[in-house]
Design a protein around this nucleic acid. Structure first.
Length: 671
DNA sequence: GTGGGTTCAGGCGT
DNA sequence: CACGCCTGAACCCA
């Protein structure tokens, strides 16, 4: 089992623990052992050394028998070679349980609620419309843990768990929105659709979260995590508060301070675990690494003005207690963004410590509690900082980076957005040596004659709608929502093409329109040449095409003998199966009658002409995937290789793709 | 701008 | 004490 990737840096993991060992090391928080309760902020409240608690629970993680990765349905075509075998989740879970009971024995405290048994966590699969017997949702656990060090393998595992939950959430939301539109278009009060219609629930994000909650699909509810959440990196971007709840990053749907309540804490004191800096408090003072955060409460429900003094209770007290115990706080910042459905994006900015607090007089003249928080050093750059930096780079690149630009547009105007070329590492100028090819060049024999017409196009004079020829081609539904987000990965997507009468604004024309994000080819010491975006890329968004000179099977055999750079489309793992997979909620939805796609045996020669896609780095936990698309010709054996985002990709994060079997050409291109 | 809507903490009662 | 019910608090999203 090989893991090529360098591990994401884990700022809190102790340097002494081996990153490669297969161990999950949970440090139960030492303060849970403290019996005496004391007054807030008394000086004897310094944090306890974690040593004894750590030693008590350090237990080797025995790897369970490898389970078939259930990320991929039975329809998967080729097993993914680059992914590690997934630990069986039940086994993982029982490991948490065992540690919990160990702790109970050693601490002798009955105040900790034992973790639920695996049976209790088994998802109650409820089919839509089948009686809808309301199942009781499991309450949040009060077991407070810190996940201190994860092996590389565990990190990839949790990243995939989180990605799967996020895809489920976002796909459900997209489908519910589409369903609303369809119901509206038909003039029905939602008579059709996936979910039972509930007029009280209007917001798709809430409905999606509720569907997941009913099936126990929310993450990290069986333990309250202090510090980093496994599978979530500093800099990750989110679009909905509900999504933060689903992932367990921040459990309050509205409140800015999430905390373990006093009643559930062993010491009887509330403990804060995360905050959201949404800019809603006029007394906040955010300097990035140093943050003065305002406590909650004391405000009029409608006017966002303070009208009474805040009290040191609830989340306010929890922040103070976290300061006393030295508990780190996850900080999530809301930033305005046009790319977000709600105009806001939430960045996970990493861990902070509360270093001071005081009662101040706010701008409205009433008492507010203020908390000075300092970011823990050694973490990845903040998402919100990268976002602002990228916004600046888009308008005035040279003031931030006076040197290093080899080109402001390596496509020389051929793409509709410029593609910058940047190298501040060495003097390599390699990408300048190639012809930039926006579209692949197919062999004429493959795209002429009957392949070009392919049965003609639709006759729609307006934008295409359900029932038109092109919708039928896609199995009766369009692949994209109205904003151009791919709803679900498919073996093949048919966009409208030159033989269609619909206008260019037709929503079934997406990937054929080219780049929508400011991409940048850059040089890095770790991955050679790579690609990143200055724009925040929402999951499911089209990014770019994989271009080059397309060779037939026979041609590629000849060329390969000469040692040229060939990309084989059939070697990309079928990651499109992941995108739009909601089988956790609707198992029957994941049994699509996909037409058997032809075995693609062409290859793409990128030795002479190429585009930006060529510089994507490889990862076995990628953030983009390939979707095959046809639009300008209809030869199923020669589809376009379109690249879509598998996750929300924050600005300046490297784009990575799973190349499957890594040929020497990957090395060549990125050396 | 307005309002419907969610989860959670905490209090109270059984 | 444990559990369930209810209310208020938080303010997000359409």
């Amino acid at each position: 089992m090989e893991v090529e990737e360098s591990s994401p840096s884990s700022p809190l993991s102790s340097p002494s623990s081996s990153p490669s060992s297969d161990s999950i090391d949970l440090n139960f928080l030492p303060f849970l052992k403290r019996e005496p309760k004391s007054e807030p902020a008394s000086p004897e409240h310094d944090s306890l050394p974690p040593s004894e608690a750590t030693a008590a629970v350090a237990a080797p993680y025995v790897s369970p028998t490898p389970a078939t990765p259930d990320l991929y349905s039975a329809a998967v075509m080729t097993p993914l070679q680059s992914l590690p075998p997934y630990p069986d989740e039940d086994a993982l879970f029982s490991e948490y349980c065992r540690l919990a009971s160990l702790y109970l024995l050693s601490a002798g405290s009955g105040a900790i609620v034992p973790a639920p048994t695996p049976e209790a966590t088994a998802p109650a699969v409820v089919h839509p419309g089948s009686g809808s017997a309301v199942k009781k949702r499991r309450p949040r656990s009060s077991e407070l843990v810190r996940v201190s060090s994860l092996s590389v393998r565990d990190q990839i595992y949790f990243r995939d768990v989180v990605r799967r939950a996020r895809i489920t959430f976002e796909s459900l939301r997209g489908l519910l929105l589409k369903d609303d539109e369809r119901a509206e278009a038909l003039g029905l009060a939602g008579a059709i659709g996936l979910a039972p219609v509930d007029r009280r629930r209007v917001r798709a994000d809430m409905r999606a979260a509720a569907l997941m909650a009913d099936r126990d699909l929310w993450l990290n509810r069986d333990r309250r995590i202090v510090g980093p959440i496994p599978g979530i990196s500093v800099g990750d971007a989110f679009f909905f508060r509900m999504e933060l709840c689903v992932l367990g990053l921040h459990g309050q749907v509205q409140a800015g301070i999430d905390y373990l309540s006093a009643g559930h804490s062993a010491s009887g004191e509330p403990i804060a675990t995360s905050i959201i800096v949404s800019g809603g408090y006029e007394d906040d003072d955010d300097r990035g690494d140093v943050l003065v955060y305002t406590g909650h409460g004391g405000r009029d429900p409608n006017l966002h003005k303070h009208c009474i003094d805040q009290k040191l209770e609830g989340g306010n007290l929890a922040l103070e207690r976290s300061m006393a115990y030295g508990i780190e706080i996850r900080v999530i910042r809301a930033v305005k963004s046009k790319r977000s459905p709600v105009g806001k994006v939430y960045f996970y900015d990493g861990l902070y410590k509360v270093v001071d607090y005081w009662l101040d007089r706010g701008k409205a003249g009433f008492g507010v509690y203020k908390y000075k928080m300092i970011r823990i050093e050694g973490q990845e750059p903040m998402g919100s900082v990268n976002y602002r930096a990228a916004e600046h780079l888009k308008v005035d690149a040279l003031s931030m980076r006076p040197t290093g630009y080899l080109s402001f547009d390596v496509s020389m105007g051929r793409e509709i957005m410029p593609v910058a070329l940047y190298n501040d590492v060495d003097d390599d100028r390699d990408p300048l040596l190639f012809e930039y090819l926006v579209r692949p060049i197919f062999p004429s024999s493959a795209v002429q004659g009957k392949f070009a017409e392919g049965g003609g196009g639709c006759g729609c004079t307006e934008n295409c709608s359900i029932g038109c020829y092109c919708a039928d081609r896609n199995g009766g539904e369009f692949a994209y929502d109205k904003t151009g987000i791919l709803l679900r990965g498919k073996p093949l997507v048919y966009e409208c093409g030159p033989y269609c009468r619909c206008p260019p604004s037709c929503p079934n024309r997406v990937s054929q329109k080219g780049l929508k994000n400011r991409l940048e080819v850059f040089r890095s010491r770790e991955t050679g040449w790579g690609v990143r975006s200055l724009d925040l890329i929402k999951a499911g968004t089209f990014i770019c095409e994989f271009s080059g000179i397309v060779l037939t099977h026979q041609q590629s055999e000849t060329v390969a003998a000469n040692g040229d750079c060939l990309v084989h489309p059939n070697r990309f793992p079928s990651r499109w199966l992941d995108w739009g997979d909601i089988s956790d909620v609707y198992p029957e939805y994941m049994a699509p009658n996909h037409p058997a796609i032809a075995d693609l045996n062409f290859s793409i020669d990128v030795s002479r002409a190429r585009n930006v896609a060529c510089y994507f780095s490889h990862s076995c936990s990628p953030n983009v995937f390939i979707q095959f698309v046809l639009f300008d010709h209809y030869n199923m054996s020669y589809p376009h290789l379109m690249i879509f985002a598998l996750e929300n990709i924050p600005p300046l994060r490297e784009l990575s793709i799973d190349y499957g079997m890594v040929d020497e050409w990957v090395g060549k291109l990125t050396m």
